[in-house]
Design a binder for these strands. Sequence first.
DNA 1: GTTGTATTACTGTGA
DNA 2: GTAATACAAC
Length: 671
Amino acid sequence: MKLNPGQNEAVHYVSGPCLVLAGAGSGKTRVIINKIAYLVQECGYKARHIAAVTFTNKAAREMKERVSKSMGRKEARGLWISTFHTLGLEIIKREYKVLGLKPGFSLFDDQDSLALLKELTQNELEEDKDLLKSLATTISNWKGDLVIPEQAKKLAKDEQSQLFAMLYQRYAQHMKAYNALDFDDLILIPTLLLRHHEEVRDRWQAKIRYLLVDEYQDTNTSQYELVKLLVGQRARFTVVGDDDQSIYSWRGAKPQNLVLLGEDFPKLKLIKLEQNYRSSQRILRAANILIANNPHVYDKALFSELAYGEPIRVLMAANEEQEAERVIAEMIRHKFVGRTQFGDYAILYRGNHQSRLLERALMTNRIPYKLSGGTSFFSRAEIKDMMAYLRLVVNPDDDNAFLRIVNLPKRGIGPATLEALGNYANKRNISMFSAIFEADLNHYLSPTAMSSLYKFGCFIVDTEEAVTRGDPVDAVKNLVRKINYEDYLYENSTSAKAAEMRMKNISELYRWVTEMLAGDDLDEPMTLPEVVTRLTLRDMMERNSEDEGGDQVQLMTLHASKGLEFPYVFMVGAEERILPHQSSIDEGNVEEERRLAYVGITRAQKELWFVICRERRQFGETMRCEPSRFLMELPQDDLIWENRKPLASPEQQQATGKSNIANLRNMLKTK
DNA sequence: GTTGTATTACTGTGA
DNA sequence: GTAATACAAC
C-alpha cells in the first residue's frame, strides 16, 4: 500500500523537529515504521542510533515486529524500540553507578508501593484507605512533575500537603533502603540524571540520534522533559499524537505537551493526517460531531472514503443482566445474518467490573471470548508469591517481598516473630532479611523462631548461589519444588480444579522466565535480575495474548481498546454516571470522558452499537439510569433507538431476551 | 504464638 | 472473586 501525501511528508521530513497530528485510524503506526526504515536505509542512520518510544509493551512489540518485517531483521537489529518505562530502566541499568544504586534493585508495582506506604503511615493516617490512596496519587503526581521531596516540602501550603510531603520523603528514604524503585522512578531518575549530569547527557544524546515518540499526547511532564533532554539542541525527532485521544490525564498525562512542543521548538514542523482508513463514513461523522463539543488547539477534519455504512444502533435493556443478554442476542443474530466470526466483535465498557456479567452471559451461551486487562495475570496471588520469591533471591533487601513469602507456605513464622524481627532491623537500619543472620538477634526471639528464620534465610541464600553459580533455569525450577508450593496450593484452594489452574499459571510464569533467560530472535538472553524487573513491567503479558489467535469475542475497557480496531463494536453502559463516569462529572472533567467515548466509537470499522440500561444496581441500591449525554450529542439521523419509549417490563424483556438466543442457537444448529 | 475458619466490603481507567 | 479482618482452636 502506498503512502498518502500527508503520510509521505511525515516520513520524509527528517531535518528537524516534527509533530504528526494523527487522527484515529489514519495510519500513524505505518508512518513510524516507514520512517524508521527511511532513516536507516536512506539517511544513513545506524539502527542503534534510533529510538522509538511507545506507552504499552504491546505497541512496542508490535512495532518491533513490523519494523523487522519491513526492513529485515538484520537491519532492524540494535533499534531501541520500547516503552518509556523500559527505556528509563535501560538508562538506569547502564548508569546505576552514577546513581549510587546497588545492582539487582527491585521494581515495586503500585500494590507494593501502597503496602509500603501503609506500613509507613500507620501513625499519621490511621488506616484511612482513601487518604492512603490519595497520598499514593499525590506522590505519583509529584514524581511525574519532577518534584523531589525537598521541593514538595517547600511547595506545600496547607497542612495536608505538608504531611504528604513529609511522608513522600519518608517513602523515598525507605525505597532507597529497600534498594527498590517504583514505576514513576523509571522516568524520574533518568530525567534528573540527564538534567544534572552533562557528561551523561552528552553520552546519551550521542547514543540516541533520532527519537520517535508514539501517543505523544499521553506524555507527562517528566516524560516530555526526558524527550527534550534526549534530543538536545539537534532536536531530531518525530512525535505522533492526537489530542482527541488523550484519555490518561488521571495518571498525569499532559496533553498540553502538544502545545508546549510548538513553544519549545519554534521550528517545529506540523503535519496532519486526516484520512481515516478504518471506519465507515457514518461512524466517522458521528465521532467528529461528538468530539466537536470539545475545545481544540489544532483543528482536525477527519474524513473517510469508505462506504457510508449502517446506522448506529442504540439497544435498551431493563437492567444490567439483560444488557448482557441483549448484547449477546444481537451479536448472535448479526453473526448469523452477516456470516461473520466471533473474532470480529468487541464489547467495550467503562470499568473492569462491568465485564463480570458479560463474561457470565458469554459463558452460558458457550461463546468463546477473550478478556483483556482486568485482574491481570500479574496480580494473581500465586504469581505475586512466585515473583516475591524471585525478587527476594535477586534483592534480599526487598522487605516487601520478604514479608510476603517468609511464611508462605507456613514455616511457623507468625506476626509476633516478624514484628520482633522488624523492630530489630529498624533499629539497626538493615533489611529484615539481613537481620536474620545477625548474631545478637537471639536476645529478642525464641530459639524455635530463630531456627525457622535461619532455615528460611539459608534457603534463599542457597538459591541465590545456585542462580549465580549454576544454571539459573534449574535453580528456578528447584525453587518451586523445594518450597512445596504445589502442596500448599492443593491444601489452600477451594477446589482441586482451582489449584490446578493456579499451578498452570505458575508453569506459565516459569515458561516465560525460562524463555527470557534463554532469549530469542527478537530479544537477547537476560539475567535473572533483568527477567524479574521486566516481568514486573508486564513485558511478557501481551506476547502471550498474541498467540491466542482463536475466534473469540474481544472484551476490554475503553482505555484498553485504544490503538485497536474491530469490525463490529458494542459499547455497553452508555449512560450518565458511567460514561461520563460520576467521578469525572464531579471533577468537571467530562471532556476526557468525551474523548473516551470518541476512542470507543472510532474503534469500529463497520458497525457500532450502544447499549443502555433503564436501571442498574449499584451499592446494593437500584438506580434509574439516563442515556449518556454523549448519545444526545451524536447526529440523531445516524442513530436508530430501539424501543425508545415503551420499555417492556423486566419479566417480558427477560422472556424475549432468552428465547431470542435460544431460537438463534437452534437456527445455527440446523444450518 | 501460630493456624484455621467465617465474615465483611469492595470494584475509574493502567505502565 | 479477593483481601482484609476478627475470633476461636491448636
